[in-house]
């Protein structure tokens, strides 16, 4: 393949230097730290993040304009947070001119499509100041998470303090210290179907993208991709927001990222093709060919 990691100008392993952020961040606290810095530096006026929702572990998109709101949104919720749904409102009743947004690779695709083809996004395209993408193999409907945690892992959802997918397992950590790991073959059936046609693992279209894969525990792999990404990243480094290590000096490094990206894309590319001959003389729609 060769371009499964997308264009980037810089790739490092990093973590935030802010202890408070790290306390509840998923990995190296890259997303929260970078937004907090950009907010302070006036690079963004606010950011759309997955804030706390009505039910445990169910995210709800919010426009965060303070550090507190950013902090409240730390950590990965493995179910859908339609962050792009706020992209226009952020520029309206919230009054933002420079919008930050975090999202999965598909949400980054939505943002870039929205900038080039703003069919219903008047005056939004030039207000996207910082789009942070997070790596993503797949996502889940909320009910899937309920069933995985409560049935398969046998834990009460309210008592879970962290969930994680890594090292080939789905991990559930509870407040009381229990750690349950589920093999990924259990989780597969629960995946969101729309993820099976997804051809991006590391958020190729983000300004900066990040994920845990490739870096040691507690650290994140970071790709700096665009001009505005470079700008904010270099300023944040200069301000001492992050500790970094060259990516070729950490384990398991880019090789694993490349391998997983490749696996995801090849598998899903096959799905896209199979879908086209799904029925008898009839197929399912392929959005990469036409609407």
């Amino acid at each position: 393949m060769g371009n499964e990691l997308g264009k980037y100008t810089n790739c490092v392993s990093a973590r935030s230097t802010d202890k408070e952020i790290l306390k509840k961040a998923q990995d190296g606290g890259i997303v929260t730290q970078l937004f907090a810095f950009a907010l302070d530096a006036g690079i963004i006026d606010g950011a759309i993040v997955a804030g706390p929702g009505d039910e445990p572990w169910r995210p709800r998109p919010i426009v965060a304009t303070t550090r507190e709101e950013l902090l409240a949104a730390r950590g990965t919720r493995y179910n859908i947070s339609p962050n792009v749904s706020l992209i226009k409102e952020a520029t309206r009743s919230y009054g933002l001119d420079k919008v930050g947004i975090v999202g999965t690779p598909c949400q980054m695709q939505a943002i870039r499509k929205g900038q080039l083809y703003p069919v219903g996004l008047r005056d939004v395209p030039d207000k996207i100041a910082l789009a942070i993408g997070i790596f993503c193999m797949e996502n889940f409907p909320y009910q899937s998470i309920v069933q995985l945690v409560e049935d398969h892992a046998g834990q009460k959802l309210e008592s879970v303090k962290k969930m994680e997918i890594g090292k080939g397992k789905f991990w559930v950590y509870t407040e009381r210290g229990a750690v349950v790991q589920l093999p990924l073959k259990v989780t597969h059936k629960y995946e969101q179907p729309g993820c099976h046609v997804c051809l991006d693992y590391v958020a190729n279209l983000a300004d900066v993208s990040t994920g845990s894969v490739g870096s040691p525990d507690g650290w994140s792999t970071v790709f700096v991709r665009s001009k505005s990404g470079e700008d904010v990243w270099s300023k944040a480094i200069a301000a001492g927001c992050f500790e970094t290590k060259p990516i070729d000096q950490v384990k398991p490094g880019l090789e694993l990222v490349t391998k997983l990206a490749n696996e995801k894309i090849s598998k899903n590319q096959k799905t896209v093709e199979e879908r086209m001959k799904f029925g008898v003389g009839k197929g399912l729609r392929n959005p990469y060919i036409k609407p």
């Binding site: 006026d45 304009t65 409102e89 309206r92 009743s93 919230y94 009054g95 933002l96 001119d97």
Partner: peptide, 12 residues
Amino acid sequence: YKACSERAKNKM
């Protein structure tokens, strides 16, 4: 549907 924030008010 939505109130305007302080920031939005100032911008206007």
